[in-house]
């Protein structure tokens, strides 16, 4: 059976865009194949690792578990947007300074979840950090440095 595709319209990294999607297409496929955005990556395919994180209306979602049609009308931000002006986001700077990644495959997801965390809790406790990042996995095991990076990012954002 071929399902009819439909046109959806949404804001992607600050610009209004449209896309032709079929109902069974996931959001990550559309970002990747339709817009050439590769910062979100499908890894576990089950919403458990966080590699495919994007921000939808300001909140993290797993784009591998999200039907693209449901993004119609939404405001989407991918990791590529954070340094769109050429300047790194304080969260990105903090991840570099704290050495908070190794292979880097999971890093965009951690960066975006940290952004949601700091948007909601500018001065997060250790518990809040673990809570927001408990759905992001780093197989290289860089967690101690990630916690350090989140705290550094909070300080950087606080002092801006």
């Amino acid at each position: 059976m071929t399902a009819p595709s439909r046109t959806i319209a949404f804001t992607l990294n600050g610009r209004p865009v449209t896309a032709e999607v079929a109902p069974h297409h996931t959001l990550i496929e559309v970002l990747r194949d339709g817009f050439g955005l590769y910062g979100a990556r499908e890894s576990c395919g089950q919403g458990l690792c966080g590699c495919c994180t994007v921000l939808l209306d300001g909140r993290g979602v797993s784009s591998c578990l999200y039907l693209a049609v449901f993004a119609d009308g939404a405001e989407l931000v991918t990791v590529e947007h954070l340094a769109a002006g050429g300047e790194l986001d304080p969260v990105q700077e903090a991840f570099i300074e704290a050495g908070a990644f190794q292979c880097g495959f999971c890093t965009p997801g951690f960066v975006l979840m940290t952004k949601q965390l700091l948007d909601e809790h500018p001065d997060p406790s250790d518990d809040q950090i673990r809570h927001y990042l408990s759905g992001n996995l780093c197989r290289c095991g860089t967690y101690p440095q990630i916690v350090e990076a989140v705290k550094l990012a909070a300080r950087k954002r606080g002092s801006v």
Binding site: S62, S134, G135
Partner: peptide
């Protein structure tokens, strides 16, 4: 809910 699944899943 804080212990349930993860933030992204709960957002959806």
């Amino acid at each position: 809910l804080v212990t349930h699944s993860n933030v992204r899943v709960r957002n959806v």
